[in-house]
């Protein structure tokens, strides 16, 4: 229910913002030398001269029936374009997130178990570097080493999922480039959450029961430290879905981020409007899933629902 309301509000905001943005798509398409009557005809055809409530209602009605409109620039259904781009962006985001978690969990656990000692300091220094490195520079470094020098993986482009192996190979380097800063952030969050829970009375109780330091960390502290980690994971996924634009550009990947960027430069308002709405829907969905995960982790949140 709240899900639907948030989406409706989001659609209204997106429509309002896009509508307010200066730049007339019709005049953009015809160029500056267009004759006024041609322009007027095109505007009428595109429905741009209708009053805004009608345009909003039409768009919303379409969205509800799965019709996201037709791209002004390419004259193809926007839904198809988004689905095509999601085939790159979704697996990429998931792979990057999985990779980040796979690195961050052991690193965070190790750092927390060595709290304040050399091992902890080393991991923390490493994550500091991971956060600080600009990821396009790291991406280019990966290309130089693994594509140009070693020739293990392709330097860019995406062959499509009908060649699964080639597709996976071409997403490998971008996923690593995206994962690095996220892994560093996640490891830091996990470490500080763990160190905080390690100071809790129930961890002391667990030690008094005979659990070793490592057992208490794994069995008692880890799950209690999951709430902030889940929050960060949810935010990272939302960011990776559309925020990968720089990495998509470095690797020439046809992802969602590039689609939106191109659509904005071309004043392709229908594409912008609809893909942003899809993004918002994705973020709301992820938030919802994260909320469900909270309740799964913490029994105290179950009764409140």
């Amino acid at each position: 229910m709240t899900l639907a309301v948030s989406l409706l509000v989001a659609s209204a905001v997106i429509f309002a913002v896009v509508d307010l943005v200066p730049g007339d798509p019709a005049s953009f398409m015809l160029g500056t030398g267009a004759r006024p009557d041609t322009l007027a005809a095109l505007r009428a055809e595109m429905g741009l001269n209708l009053p805004w409530p009608v345009r909003y209602a039409r768009w919303l009605g379409g969205v509800l029936t799965g019709d996201l409109g037709t791209s002004l620039a390419y004259r193809t259904p926007v839904a198809g374009m988004i689905v095509e781009r999601l085939q790159v962006s979704l697996p990429l985001a998931l792979a990057a997130l999985a990779l980040a978690a796979a690195v961050a969990f052991p690193a965070g656990l190790y750092a927390a178990s060595r709290g304040g000692r050399a091992g902890d300091a080393a991991v923390m220094a490493g994550t500091q570097v991971g956060v600080a490195i600009p990821n396009f520079w790291f991406a280019m470094l990966l290309v130089l080493v693994f594509a140009v020098k070693l020739r293990w993986l392709p330097a860019g482009g995406f062959p499509g999922w009908d060649q699964p192996l080639a597709a996976i190979r071409s997403l490998a380097l971008p996923a690593v480039a995206l994962a690095l800063p996220q892994a560093a952030i996640l490891a830091r969050v996990l470490r500080s959450a763990l160190i905080e829970t390690l100071g809790q009375d129930y961890v002391r109780s667990a030690r008094a029961k005979g659990l070793t330091r490592a057992q208490a960390l794994r069995r008692h502290a880890l799950r209690n430290a999951m709430i902030p980690v889940l929050t960060i994971l949810g935010m990272q996924f939302s960011f990776l879905l559309a925020g990968a634009i720089i990495i998509e550009n470095v690797f020439y990947l046809p992802g969602l981020g590039r689609l939106i960027f191109q659509a904005i430069t071309q004043r392709d308002l229908v594409v912008v409007q609809s893909s942003v709405l899809v993004m918002v829907a994705a973020v709301i969905l992820v938030t919802f899933v994260v909320d469900l995960a909270y309740a799964l982790v913490d029994p105290r949140l179950r009764g409140a629902r």
């Binding site: 129930y202 002391r204 008094a208 799950r223 209690n224 029994p299 105290r300």
Partner: peptide, 16 residues
């Protein structure tokens, strides 16, 4: 050797 502590409100793991 068993031990119990002062603060019962926080001595138990809230998730177990």
């Amino acid at each position: 050797i068993g031990m119990i502590f002062q603060e019962p409100m926080t001595a138990l793991n809230p998730l177990m």
